[in-house]
Nucleic acid binder design. Structure first.
Lengths: 178, 178
DNA sequence: CAGTGATATGCAACTCTTTGCATAGCTATT
DNA sequence: AATAGCTATGCAAAGAGTTGCATATCACTG
């Protein structure tokens, strides 16, 4: 399971509560791995039970208390091992592509609409990633090693967005005229 | 569920058996949606039960008999409706990106190795898609409407591969030197 | 005729993800 | 006091996907 590993990864530097993790998954790692709060809280409980994480109740003023989790020694070791294992390639699993296989005169307008929505969504993601890049990775070569890895992943996010936008511009006229 | 819709889409032009669908999912639509034979056979039974598909036993010589499924009128209508609904953006869900967040001196060699494997895999996919493009889509504008949609999806596959290869070339030196 | 391998199909258990519902603390506003 | 809204956490059911195992037909080879 990689959600567990994604969560442990997110906790590498900063211990966080489930709520904070959920927020952080909405940006950062969340581009590569989306997870609902239900999934995250569940995973946190499981991981704590397996001694991968240690949770600590933190009283708060002005807000409900929270439980902050940090990686244990064992969790760190397990994560390190996982990194050294084999990854497998995942599929895109995107409705839009399947829908394109169904292109006809009746649905063309709708599909163009969806392509436009997708473009808008991706463009807004892209500008978010660009902001992050400027803010935190202006000089990537002078960063600590792990942050350079994060930067590579961020670049993937950026390139992915750019690629998607270019593809949409490429096919829009084709779909339009089809 | 979109696997069902992907299967119905695959059957738009050509009635197929579960076995043939499984093979066809390995190429074509399979770039966007991978599915095991277990999943496919199950989906076929479900869809037949819902009257979306009609199965017909076809005796064969030299091979075991098979059941060939074709879209029913109702299946076609349901599919058309689905196309007109909203898609949602899916996440990349790729271990490699999560692993990059874990980059350190110990695992760097392994991650570079995985990047290379990924590049090789994607390159081989790309050449497959290129062959398909040359073989079946040499003159995209003169194709029937639906095939033009398929062509757009194929372009997505091609661009995706190209993008991934470019990204790997971009980050390889970064990971190397980190 | 035993073994290998492609064709063709299926069950069951498990894991992972989504969705809907629910609760509770605390702040600020009306 | 009621209400809206963010913070913080959880259960349960259903849907989707993976993995392991199983079975049978047919052709070909040793």
């Amino acid at each position: 399971m990689a959600l567990n590993h994604a969560i442990m990864t997110a906790l590498l530097d900063t211990p966080m509560s489930g709520y904070e993790l959920t927020k952080s998954f909405d940006t950062s790692l969340g581009f590569f791995w989306k997870a609902s709060h239900q999934q995250i809280y569940k995973a946190l409980r499981d991981l704590e039970q397996q001694s991968m994480l240690a949770g600590e109740e933190v009283p708060q003023a002005g807000k409900p208390d929270k439980v902050v989790y940090q990686l244990t020694r064992q969790g760190r070791d397990t994560l390190d091992e996982w990194v050294l294992g084999q990854s497998r390639v995942s599929d895109a699993k995107d409705d839009l592509f399947v829908k394109l296989y169904n292109l006809n005169d009746t649905n063309r307008a709708h599909i163009i609409e969806e392509l436009s929505e997708r473009a808008a969504h991706v463009a807004s993601n892209l500008s978010l990633y660009q902001r992050i890049r400027e803010r935190s990775f202006a000089e990537p070569t002078s960063l600590p090693v792990r942050q350079q890895g994060v930067y590579c992943a961020l670049l993937a996010g950026i390139r992915h967005c750019e690629w998607t936008l270019a593809w949409i511009e490429e096919v829009r006229p084709l779909v339009d005229a089809a």
